[in-house]
Simulated scan of single mutants.
Amino acid sequence: MNAQIWVLGGTGRSGRTIAAQLARLGLKAVLVGRDANRLHTAAQSSGSATLLVPSLAAAAAEIRQQRPAVVVNTVGPFTTTAPEVVIDGCRAAGSHYIDLANDVAALSAVYEMHDAATQAGHTLVTGAGFGVTATESVVAKLCEGRPVPLRVRVDMVPSIAMEEGIAGEALIGTLLGSLDGRRITDGRLAPARIFSDAMRLTLPDGSQVTTASMPSGELLAAHRASAARHVLSATSEAPSSPLIRAMMPALSTLMRWERLRSFTTRHLARVRVKAKARPREHSWGHALVTWTDGETREGWLRLGDAQEFTGAVPAEIARRLLAGEGRPGAFTPAALFGPTLAESCGAAYLLPRRGRR
């Protein structure tokens, strides 16, 4: 096995950000992609090497042959690219695997490969982006040394500077994968109305946002970090329009049809996004934890641009895996390295409130 860190989808925004963060850590990435010109341009800014492949299947074949130490997958939709293609290649090569997935189905698929990864002696890390890492880290921090709580609510409040370009299948796949309403009820994944449970949050800087339920990968990560009987995940990115919220149950049902979902993902992925400054100075991960005796603890994780954090997290995880600091199996970031990982990536905890309700 060689000591290289491969970044699949290296020409995309996430791939380029991860490569830049690896360079900051003194590590050189190998950017893997299908477009030679875009690979060359992306590699110049971070001093990365490149590997031109015609398809993801070809990339998996190269992983088997060249056996890089760590593979970072930024290519969505992750329910398709992770277990069926890339992770199989990593298992055969003994390579560690990291992805940016943030939907229930994708995280569940990786979790199901825990035993196989343990037997193979390699590490799988899913959810290595802003949403999962920010919220599960706050939950882990609040629950340190505490009994199992009764109830947990997590809220992600991203602030991202948008660059002009196409939306991409990773983003669209994650969004569509979050339309099927879910929450943890009595310790089990259960149906729930999407974009319900709206809450007006006052952020530590005094500004306010409204969040509403959306069952992204944070739901599973928060449940595993706390073992709480009831867990809800929410986001400030939930639409505020009553009409759109009313349409969501019907749209969720339609998106269960695999052909329609694949068609929609491919076409929405081509939509062009306009450049836009980030809406606030900080991004936030938030958690509210309640115990059976009525005690509540509320905490925040403060960071800058959520996209930059999404680059820093997999880069730091790759550095640690390269240094032999991981362990075999399937994990989310804080489950593997604890809540201090987020601080290593530039975030800070604010844990101001404690009381009874």
Score class of each variant (00 low, 15 high):
residue 279 P to F: 04
residue 219 L to I: 03
residue 173 G to E: 11
residue 17 T to L: 13
residue 335 A to M: 10
residue 348 A to R: 14
residue 346 G to N: 04
residue 257 W to S: 14
residue 109 A to E: 00
residue 253 T to Y: 13
residue 28 K to P: 09
residue 317 I to V: 12
residue 209 V to H: 03
residue 110 V to Q: 11
residue 47 G to P: 08
residue 86 V to R: 09
residue 101 A to S: 13
residue 327 R to S: 08
residue 95 S to M: 07
residue 35 D to S: 08
residue 309 F to E: 06
residue 168 G to E: 06
residue 312 A to C: 08
residue 215 P to D: 05
residue 278 R to N: 10
residue 233 S to I: 02
residue 273 V to K: 12
residue 98 I to Y: 02
residue 349 Y to T: 03
residue 8 L to Q: 02
residue 126 T to P: 11
residue 101 A to I: 08
residue 137 S to M: 03
residue 257 W to M: 12
residue 96 H to A: 05
residue 223 H to K: 11
residue 23 A to W: 01
residue 92 A to K: 10
residue 255 M to H: 01
residue 228 A to W: 04
residue 7 V to G: 04
residue 221 A to Y: 05
residue 296 T to F: 12
residue 278 R to L: 15
residue 51 L to W: 05
residue 215 P to H: 09
residue 180 D to L: 15
residue 117 A to C: 11
residue 267 H to L: 15
residue 301 L to C: 06
residue 284 W to A: 01
residue 338 G to H: 07
residue 356 R to V: 15
residue 148 V to M: 11
residue 49 A to N: 12
residue 76 G to Y: 10
residue 143 C to L: 06
residue 270 R to C: 10
residue 285 G to P: 04
residue 247 M to A: 14
residue 29 A to R: 03
residue 55 S to P: 09
residue 88 D to V: 15
residue 307 Q to H: 13
residue 233 S to T: 05
residue 111 Y to A: 13
residue 281 E to F: 09
residue 76 G to A: 08
residue 29 A to W: 02
residue 259 R to V: 13
residue 203 L to E: 06
residue 75 V to K: 04
residue 2 N to F: 10
residue 262 S to W: 12
residue 311 G to W: 00
residue 344 S to Q: 14
